[in-house]
Nucleic acid binder design. Structure first.
Length: 924
RNA sequence: GCGUCUAUAGCUCAGUUGGUUAGAGCGCUACCUUGACAUGGUAGAGGUCCCCUGUUCGAGUCAGGGUAGACGCACCA
């Protein structure tokens, strides 16, 4: 094995083998365990959020697979209607064409071509991450079987009256020319103005002043509203306004919705361009005049002077024109929420169009019940509040999109405009008795991408066919996803899966935090702080990283700043840390918090951890390969350390499994790290050396230690495997051959069973014994460290107050003590025997004395003692205070009081010894 | 307006139902190339647990109030 761990040299071949051997498929036996991959956009490439969530899913998948569960990780990609269409359109634009030049059919062909070429990016990146989904079941949301499911669901919901078509005000993206759902609209507060405009009464008898943030919509005003009880305007209700510029007559109406305190108390009503006005228009039966085109220009409903003008241009002109006529009262500064499309960032326009909707209320009810009853569990739990809040106020879902890429709506129109819904045109004709002479046109619209995503839990498993997978893997075990798509996706899956299978889609919903940069900023192209997980795996030179961060920017003016920042942060680029280090970083960051600041220092730390595992394994192999490890039998004697490391391993295994059951991957990772580095490497490996490098050790002792070395490592690799698949499998190949593993199946650690709890190996006595050994050794090292005694200088130790148990431990562990503390001799003083002036360390009641002659400086030792006494004195004072408090003694549980008493006794004893020591030394 | 979350070492974060001296990694200091590993070892320094008031024998942990910040939903033209 190489001296340092080189991840690049092992990962690729490992993965190819796993996939080729079919290790990712469900075993077909055991309890079902299933995870659905949230399908990434087929246009996408792997970002830190994917890396994070997929590492967690893969860890769970590998863990359950090793546990013997019938484990399926269902994988697939999403056609991502808007995103994909935009990507391909942009490519066309670069060639000087638009999608309209191609026409619908050819454009869609182009998208499929693009998908065939570039759609595999994200799945190949997933492979780099070591994920182990069942690729043989990979699906795409536009595949025939999924498309059939989409059609089926649409038709069924329509039959039940839960899908309907209607002309309503929708959120219209004037750049994309499509309706979008409420969720796709982001409302950000922006600086704007409030214009106060004079609306003269038609009878010439006065005027009303209305206040608006959107003066251009006045072209579509069909009323002015006041509050019914507003004394100022009461008598005007029923009269008419002569609307400026257009000259139309519009009524003054009364409605509770108007807040008399706000603005002037008079509201212009534009039912076709404002959601509240729309509702009021319905209530009062007002005319709805649409004055905008699909790209938000003024249409020909408006006076000619404004036609064809962009809405913001028209705003300016209208304000000018009103001002010229003396109808502009004032302009105030005003903050308002501006709706923008989440894809285009264009200002969204409420727009009157025909769209398809899902009536969600009846679907929401069972979906709420499923969480309230505890059948579905959010982790962390508080996310259910977010879920309830939305579900209890859920609005009908606009599912039609005026795009070309997506599932086309299975509805057909005849020349008279009648609409027929069925699976195919032929079914329409059969069902509605239409012969071939009736011309039918399929609806031009496609469905919201989330409509098909909502079917993911059952459509991927074969629905509407009744497949065995559907039977076995619905509900799935856990959904791992971010809180940003609870409404978009999670809630809708629950509704649809309940509706169409009667079952819940998943039992647990593990909501992960959002990965941010080290300053807590969201990673974004425009901030130039994006990290690519693949760059952390492979490394990247500074120049390449700068190029990557500054190319293809929406705002090229930021490039210079980003380049500078990047060079400052990564003057030497990013090192190649390898997949296992990155994965371990992800799991160790997976605590319950909502935002996770990604810290490069941790990746480096965990890369070092990989190297530690690598080198520890080298040590083990060096001592076990071509040696007798007890594989073929033979007498074995286990040392105290051997028995201890097994006990410690058992403890760690328990902690790990508890943490995984609680989805506390950070705790699980911490347990692994701590055991591997601080116990196995720092202590156990050191403790094997006195046995193995000792001519006095018997062959049975050596065999026992080698056996323990290789087999604890073998178990440890299996324990680590779900988090660090590559390094563990690579090392395991060599370890297995020497260990007690059955050689008939050593193809991969992946297919090995997960380590099991063995009560025979739990041993509290041996744990305490080694604690004693550690305290002994650390005590001596302490003296060395603070007294500036070279670690190479052999010491002679004297022991005072040695109990029977100390004596037993001394005899069991003497070779460990001699070697690790570098002792030349250990002598037990008999009671009353005089000791020379010494530096001391305490192990319980026992005192270790290192004679000072020629070694130890008096003042240094006094300083050290003073420091120790100070600590203990503080402790004594605190504990005494507690015990002197009657209230504490009478109220606290007996166990707590007892603890305090013991503590005080120990501390007092210690203090006494330290004082005596101090006294002796001072007297020198 | 309604709701959720966060504040602990220089930095990034853990800290279970209240109960020993509040922990880890990185960084920092000193020493050490000891035959697994300098991507290492040994020893160490470093904390007003955001503030205030309570509850309690006892509060980083519970309650109330505040400060600073993040987010979601609904919104007044």
């Amino acid at each position: 094995m190489d001296k340092t761990f080189e991840p690049q040299s092992i990962e690729q071949q490992c993965y190819e083998k796993w996939e080729k051997e079919g290790f990712f498929k469900p075993s077909g036996s055991g309890d079902p365990y299933c995870i659905l991959l949230p399908p990434p956009n087929v246009t996408g490439s792997l970002h830190m959020g994917h890396g994070f969530q997929q590492t967690i899913m893969d860890a769970l998948t590998r863990y359950h697979r090793m546990k013997g569960d019938n484990t399926l990780w269902q994988v697939g990609t999403d056609h991502a209607g808007i995103a994909t269409q935009m990507v391909v359109e942009r490519k066309l634009n670069a060639e000087g064409k638009t999608r309209h030049d191609l026409g619908r059919e050819d454009f869609i062909k182009k998208v499929w071509e693009w998908k065939a070429e570039s759609g595999g990016t994200i799945t190949s990146q997933m492979r780099r991450l070591g994920t182990s989904p069942d690729w043989s079941r990979e699906v795409f949301t536009m595949d025939d079987n999924l498309s059939n499911a989409v059609t089926e669901v649409f038709v069924k919901l329509h039959e039940e009256g839960l899908i309907y078509r209607g002309k309503r005000l929708v959120n219209w993206d004037p750049v994309l020319h499509t309706a979008v759902s409420d969720l796709e609209v982001l409302n950000e507060e922006e600086d704007g103005h409030m214009w106060h405009m004079r609306y003269p009464l038609a009878d010439g008898d006065g005027e009303l002043v209305v206040a608006t943030t959107r003066p251009e919509t006045m072209l579509g005003d069909t009323a002015v509203a006041v509050h019914p009880d507003d004394e100022r305007y009461k008598k005007l209700v029923g009269k008419h306004i002569k609307l400026p510029i257009t000259g139309r007559l519009i009524p003054i109406i009364a409605d509770d919705y108007v807040d008399p305190e706000f603005g002037t108390g008079c509201v212009k009503i534009t039912p076709a361009h404002d959601f509240n006005d729309y509702d009021m228009g319905k209530r009062h039966n007002l005319e709805m005049i649409n004055v905008l085109t699909a790209d938000a220009k003024i249409n020909d409903e408006a006076p000619q002077a404004y036609q064809g003008m962009d809405r913001f241009e028209a705003r300016k002109k209208i304000v000018e024109d009103l001002d010229a006529e003396g109808l502009l009262v004032k302009i105030d500064k005003h903050k308002l929420k501006v709706p923008r499309g989440d894809r285009t960032n264009a200002v969204i326009e409420p727009y009157l169009t025909d769209q398809w909707y899902v009536a969600v209320e009846s679907l929401a009810k069972p979906a709420i019940d499923a969480v309230e009853s505890g059948e579905i569990r959010f982790i962390p739990e508080n996310w259910n509040k977010t879920y309830y809040q939305w579900m209890n106020n859920i609005q009908d879902w606009c599912i039609s999109r005026q795009l070309w890429w997506g599932h086309r709506i299975p509805a057909w129109y005849d020349d008279a405009g009648n609409v027929y819904v069925a699976r195919t045109e032929r079914e329409v004709r059969e069902r509605y008795g239409l012969n071939e002479t009736t011309e039918l046109q399929q609806d031009e619209d496609v469905l919201d991408t989330w409509f098909s995503s909502a079917l993911w839990p059952f459509a991927t498993l074969g629905w509407p066919e009744e497949t065995p997978e559907l039977e076995t893997f619905v509900p799935s075990s856990v959904l791992v996803t971010g809180f940003d798509i609870i409404f978009f996706w999670v809630a809708r899956m629950i509704m649809m899966t309940k509706k169409f299978t009667g079952k819940i889609p998943f039992k647990d919903i593990y909501i992960t935090g959002l990965i941010r940069d080290e300053n807590g900023d969201k990673m974004s192209k425009s901030k130039g702080n994006v990290l690519d997980p693949i760059d952390l795996i492979d490394g990247i030179a500074a120049d390449s990283l700068v190029d990557k961060r500054t190319s293809g920017m929406m705002q090229p003016q930021l490039a210079e700043k980003i380049a500078k920042r990047t060079r400052k942060e990564f003057p030497d680029g990013i090192q190649a840390y390898g997949t296992d280090a990155l994965r371990f970083t992800f799991v160790s960051m997976a605590s319950t918090s909502r935002d996770i600041n990604f810290d490069m220092g941790r990746v480096e730390g965990y890369r070092n951890f990989c190297n530690k595992i690598w080198n520890a394994s080298r040590f083990v192999l060096m001592n076990c390969e071509e040696q007798d490890t007890g594989r073929e039998g033979g007498e074995m004697v286990l040392s105290l350390a051997d028995r201890w490391v097994w006990a410690k391993f058992q403890q760690t295994l328990g902690e790990f499994e508890r943490a995984i059951a609680d989805y506390r991957f950070d705790i699980a990772a911490q347990a692994l790290y701590e055991f591997t580095w601080n116990q196995f490497c720092d202590w156990y490996l050191e403790l094997t050396k006195p046995v193995l490098n000792n001519d006095n050790s018997s062959e049975a002792e050596k065999r026992g230690t080698r056996h323990t070395l290789i087999n604890v490592l073998e178990h440890l690799l299996r324990l680590l495997h779900p988090f660090m698949p590559f390094i563990t499998d690579t090392i395991w190949q060599r370890v297995a051959a020497v260990s007690a593993v059955d050689v008939s199946d050593t193809s991969s650690i992946m297919t090995q069973p997960f380590p099991e709890q063995q009560s025979a190996r739990q041993d509290d006595q041996v744990l305490a014994d080694i604690e004693w050994v550690k305290t002994f050794i650390v005590g001596i090292r302490n003296i060395r460290g603070e007294m500036d005694i070279s670690p190479n200088k052999p010491l002679n130790a004297l022991l005072k107050h040695v109990s029977q148990e100390d004596k037993r431990r001394l005899s069991d562990a003497d070779m460990f003590l001699d070697k690790l503390a570098k002792l030349e001799s250990v002598k037990v003083l008999s009671e009353g025997e005089e000791a020379p002036a010494s530096a001391t360390a305490l192990v319980g009641d026992m005192e270790i004395l290192i004679p000072m002659a020629g070694l130890i400086d008096k003042d240094a030792e006094l300083a050290r003692l003073n420091k120790a006494m100070e600590k203990v004195e503080k402790d004594v004072a605190r504990t005494q205070g507690k015990l002197a408090n009657d209230k504490f003694v009478s109220n606290a549980p007996e166990a707590v009081i007892e603890k305090e008493r013991t503590k005080l006794q120990d501390a007092e004893k210690q203090l006494e010894k330290l004082k005596a020591q101090h006294h002796t030394i001072s007297a020198l």
